[in-house]
């Protein structure tokens, strides 16, 4: 069954990695489009002025996976809800919505954070990376490949958060011990209890990323 699964998933990126993305025709989003110029502008964008804005909708722009998105949101909208409900990046999942489960993990300026605990308006001018932006075209990220190889999920709902957290963790710990992986991913919960497979996958991905 494992091999069948592998081949199924390996084929999908041709038409877009995410199931919903494929159906909507959004697919890989801007993941592969991000140019050096865009990323530079994203980081250099000035923060909004000191005058208060809201409580009604205000125009903001977010740089997600190297692509700029302009949208209107109330200041109370979290980054997670903006990504999911306004921009159709549904990889980050809304589970606890209280900074406890890790399913909404995204990478903000290179650091893993809980998107449910960041205001969208606060994420302006910062580099946002979601699970949709990890694969390069049809080539899965090494962490994704390792998750597939180790069948490191059951229901899969926590998986995007784990994959993003693992990617951010491995960027800072290229050669982690088993204990470091355990601590590093302590901020993500899997209620199916697939932690053993996840840890094996992360250790394997570390090897792959070191080359």
């Amino acid at each position: 069954m494992g091999s069948k699964r592998d081949s199924d998933i390996q084929k999908k990126p041709k038409t877009g990695f995410s199931r919903r993305g494929f159906m909507r025709g959004v697919g890989l989003g801007g993941g592969a489009i991000g140019t050096a110029l865009l990323e530079k502008e994203a980081v250099a964008a000035p923060p909004p002025a000191a005058a208060a804005s809201g409580p009604g909708e205000v125009p903001i722009s977010l740089w997600v996976n190297g692509k700029e998105h302009k949208l209107n949101v109330e200041p109370r909208v979290t980054l997670l809800d903006a990504l999911r409900d306004h921009l159709s990046y549904t990889g980050a999942k809304r589970v606890c919505d209280r900074g406890t489960c890790g399913a909404c993990t995204v990478i903000l300026d290179g650091k893993a954070v809980y998107a449910c605990s960041v205001l969208a308006i606060d994420a302006q001018g910062r580099k946002i990376q979601t699970v949709e932006g990890l694969s390069q075209g049809s080539e899965l990220h090494p962490v994704m490949k390792a998750f597939v190889h180790h069948d490191a999920q059951q229901c899969g709902f926590c998986t995007p958060g784990f994959v993003v957290a693992a990617k951010a963790f491995l960027d800072e710990h290229p050669n982690p011990s088993d204990d470091q992986v355990r601590d590093g991913l302590g901020g993500n919960l899997c209620r199916c209890g697939t932690y053993v497979g996840i840890r094996q996958a992360v250790l394997e991905a570390a090897k792959g990323m070191r080359g």
Binding site: E74, P75, D122
Partner: peptide, 28 residues
Amino acid sequence: QAFEYANPSTVDEALGLLGSTWEEANIL
């Protein structure tokens, strides 16, 4: 609950945006 958001760049600006009660303004 909906709120207005302010993004000051100096401590003085920030102090000017805070209120005399917790209902008026919170620090993020």
